[in-house]
Design a protein around this nucleic acid. Structure first.
Length: 819
RNA sequence: GCCGAGGUGGCGGAAUGGUAGACGCGAGGGACUUAAAAUCCCUUAUCCACUAACGGAUGUGUGGGUUCAAUUCCCACCCUCGGCACCA
């Protein structure tokens, strides 16, 4: 046995050996005890793998390996979310076609990924840009269309002036483009939407069944934004138009003295047409539209409005409500028109600004404060102890307890009816970009949309286009695309020129992994055009939901909500049996450097390559895991990695030099420590506390280094304990110790609970809560014996001389004396 | 503003009511070496005392509280990070 360990040689050797033996290939059909280990698949960028990739994939692989050794049939696939803007932007700059650069990037990335040494089953790879894949992205669109969940609508949509495309609501984060950070503007465009809103309640309810981080669930709940209230039937005086108005705080409905309507509301024009208000109101509406279209709309700077001259006809018997157009009303929430009262801070401020009358209906107990409310000096809102004055039958009751009764009252008298509103908006799926899956829709000469029939799928992305961001889809520039459409459908027919949001591609990829070999690389069109089912129902039933999904928290309200929606829709369409795709979800933390997020502009990016080339994958991935708790991330240190470099060298040396074939067993102290270590490492990996699992192994190493010789059984157990964390080192030790097959194919070591009990125990002694000494006693000592021994302790003795008030014994841990 | 997570040595962190600082980095000292690297051994929260040996005080963002005992539980506040934010 050699005590010198060369990671670069050993790692290449074992990666090759694993691949040749096919140890990570999963027979999806035959598997008995399935464990689906999934990581968020990467975008194949031209850059090398960064620390974020390693920090996601390596620990995920550790868990997968751990499960495999525990007897699961682990399926751990890898693929590429390869449609998207970077390749297109690269094409604009260099003229290299996105298909070409993507293909090249995928190839380099596969080589890099293989160096991590993860247990991926490469036969099951997917690539979203392969026609065999996007055929299913298009199929999904058609299913949505067929089931009336896809529709085209004109409306104000988020537009990124830099990416020159519209964006979904989820992708406009803090008013900025999720991709490039440019401020979003509003544009009125006709776009394709998917009706995710229909699944609001189901998306909310499903969260209860999931083993996900609570903060992610909270984020999704907030994003869905369930809100209970009443809908108040209302009518415009003289015009007779009827509509409903949502009110989530119905207790104060009697206080409502005016109404506000969104500038883009279609009723506005009708209300003012031919009246003296028309010119000013429509000018205001135009100004609002322009404002939103040119800059990030800041509501605090722009609380403004204008009177329409119209009224809501006396909804509560308190008089007509003047209707104002107001900048702050959201068109997409409720009905785009709201009744306003003195008991809402924004309504109050608006009324004050324009001198609109207010009428408070509840007051604080303190007469002085109540006077202020009466005189409209302050806005009084949402105080549970407020005393109601109106309506008459609720007089004297508290605002905080009257809600349900008011709703009942309104329902009974026809003033309103209970209703639930959600903040979630429909998913805008069209993009005015080239490098995406074409929307499989064609228009007849009248402009009516028709689905592209299944036999024409994949509806190929044309190649004869120029890459120019114009705000319109580049597909318009393709001659072939137009000709193809006319040839198939007839003269005057035109294709849809927009492509799909890449989040559509990633909303079902976990199903396509199960379709073994469906996406060969490089992609080669199969004679059947990749037909079949989106997923084999028996495999879906067996392998879903995903056992463990690991990825960044930034997807909480994007990918993770879209994928859930798509799965629910597919279940309703009858293609899958589960409605939730990911049973357990874990987010990896962020690896920072010098306290800041790594970025090219800050110049603090750490590239894994130099470290991996020098020390190997095992060291690099173990250091990432050792840095801190997995879900918390950590700050990278160039020096800190030395600890793990030493650990790998030392443990290899200790095992290879000290294991003695003739030794039958180890000392009882070493055996106890070994079993304690097995227990700790098992529990810590289970809980994804990799940092403490590694410390436990380091502690154990510190102990065995002091031994003259070790048994072979101990050596083999150590090799196996290392398998999830340092898989190559583990194989090296396993084979050097004469282990059969691969370490990764062995069962996970078990500990013997009887062996972790030590013969003696150390009892700490506290006097008035302060540690004053400790005693070592035999494990079978009684409480009385221990207390007596403690009182004899030299240092303790002088404290308890002054008189003992109380003594507390915590079994096996400590004694607390109170004097 | 609202929601969530967090604040522990020089640094990364450990401990979730029971010996605070495991494990590692860094630093200081020593051994080996002609020398250096590597490796190994000792020390390492702060302050005081002692240094022949034994000790003592303070200490987990701040201020209170509960308890024999609090990093851990409760109350108030400060700070950092993440998310949401005209949603009637």
């Amino acid at each position: 046995m050699s005590s010198f360990y060369d990671p670069s040689k050993a790692e290449a050797k074992w990666q090759k050996a694993w691949e040749e033996a096919g140890v990570f290939k999963t027979d999806l059909k035959k598997a008995k005890n399935p464990y689906y280990s999934l990581v968020m698949f990467p975008y194949p960028s031209g850059d090398k793998l960064h620390i974020g990739h390693w920090y996601n994939y390596a620990p995920a692989d550790s868990i997968a390996r751990f499960r495999k050794m525990q007897g699961h049939d682990v399926f751990s696939p890898m693929g590429f979310d390869a449609f998207g803007l970077p390749a297109e932007n690269y094409a604009i700059k260099t003229g290299v076609h996105p298909a070409e650069s993507t293909k090249k990037n995928v190839e380099t990335m596969i080589t890099q990924l293989k160096k991590i040494g993860c247990m991926y089953d490469w036969d099951k790879m997917v690539n979203t840009t392969a026609p065999e894949y996007y055929r299913w992205t298009q199929w999904l669109f058609l299913e949505m269309f067929k089931n009336k969940l896809a529709y085209k609508k004109k409306g104000n949509v988020n537009f990124c002036p830099s990416c020159q495309t519209v964006l979904a609501n989820e992708q406009a984060q803090d008013g900025k483009c999720e991709r490039c950070g440019t401020e979003i503007i509003q544009k009125s465009l006709e776009q394709w939407f998917w009706n995710i809103k229909k699944y609001s309640q189901q998306l909310l309810d499903g969260l209860e069944t999931l083993d996900w981080p609570e903060k992610t669930k909270v984020m999704q709940r907030n994003w869905i934004g369930r809100n209970e209230g009443v809908n108040i039937p209302s009518r415009i005086k003289d015009l007779g138009d009827e509509f409903e108005v949502f009110d989530s705080v119905p207790q104060t409905f009697m206080a409502q003295t005016f109404s506000v309507i969104a500038p883009e509301h279609p009723l506005v024009e009708k209300m003012v047409k031919g009246t003296k208000y028309e010119k000013d109101v429509m000018a205001f509406v135009e100004r609002m539209k322009k404002l939103k279209a040119t800059e990030k709309y800041n509501f605090e700077e722009h609380v403004e409005g204008i009177f329409t001259g119209r009224y809501v006809e006396d909804p509560f018997g308190t008089g007509d409500l003047p209707i104002w157009v107001a900048s702050f009303v959201v068109m997409d929430y409720g009905t785009g028109i709201v009744h306003c009262s003195a008991h809402d801070t924004r309504d109050f401020a608006f009324a004050k600004k324009y001198g609109i009358p207010l009428r408070p209906v509840m007051f604080p107990e303190d007469p002085k404060e109540a006077e202020k409310v009466k005189n409209l000096e302050v806005c009084y809102a949402k105080d549970p102890n407020a005393i109601m004055m109106q309506p008459e039958q609720f007089k004297g009751r508290r605002w905080g307890e009257v809600r349900e009764d008011v709703i009942k009252h309104m329902t009974k008298t026809g003033l309103g009816q209970p209703v639930v509103q959600y903040r979630l908006r429909d998913w805008l799926v069209s993009r005015q970009r080239y490098w995406g899956a074409p929307i499989p829709i064609v228009y007849d000469p009248e402009g009516k949309p028709h689905p592209v029939p299944g036999e024409h799928l994949p509806w190929l992305l044309p190649t004869d286009v120029e890459f120019r961001p114009t705000g319109e889809s580049p597909l318009k520039l393709s001659k072939e695309f137009k000709e193809r459409t006319e040839k198939i459908f007839g003269k005057g027919w035109t294709p849809e020129y927009d492509t799909m949001d890449t989040f559509v591609c990633s909303s079902f990829y976990y199903l396509r992994y199960l379709m073994a070999g469906a996406h060969p690389h490089p992609p080669t069109p199969s004679p059947e055009g990749g037909r079949g089912a989106v997923v084999d129902p028996s495999l879906e039933k067996k392998w879903l939901p995903v056992s463990m999904y690991i990825g960044g928290p930034e997807h909480a309200c994007m990918h993770l909500i879209y994928a859930r929606f798509v799965m629910m829709a597919l279940k309703d369409f009858g293609y899958v049996s589960h409605e939730e795709p990911f049973r357990k979800l874990v987010h990896q933390g962020l690896v920072t450097h010098k306290g800041a997020k790594m970025s090219k502009s800050k110049g603090n990016v750490v590239s894994p390559d130099a470290f991996v080339n020098e020390h190997g994958s095992d060291v690099f991935r173990m250091y990432l895991m050792f840095m801190g708790p997995f879900e918390a991330g950590g700050d990278w240190s160039d020096l800190g990695i030395n600890g793990v470099v030493r650990f790998v060298k030392r443990i290899h040396r200790a095992i290879t030099e000290k294991v003695d074939m003739t030794m039958k067993s180890d000392s009882s102290a070493v055996t106890t420590a070994l079993h304690k270590t097995i227990k700790k490492v098992t529990e810590d990996i289970e809980a994804m506390h990799f940092n403490t699992a590694i410390s436990a192994l380091m502690e154990f190493l510190n102990l065995i280094e002091k031994e003259e010789a070790l048994s072979i059984a101990l050596g083999k157990t150590v090799a196996l304990l290392l398998a999830p964390l340092a898989p190559h080192l583990s194989e090296e030790l396993w084979s050097e110790l004469g282990g059969k097959d691969f370490a990764i194919q062995q069962p996970w070591p078990k500990y013997d609970p009887a062996l972790i009990v030590e013969a003696t125990m150390t009892i700490a002694i506290q006097i008035n809560g302060k540690l004053r000494g400790d005693i070592v006693v035999p494990r079978d000592a009684t409480k009385e014996e221990i207390l007596a021994l403690a009182k004899e302790n030299g240092n303790v003795k002088k404290y308890i001389e002054s008189g003992l008030k109380k003594e507390i014994y915590v079994p096996e841990k400590l004694i607390s004396f109170v004097v």
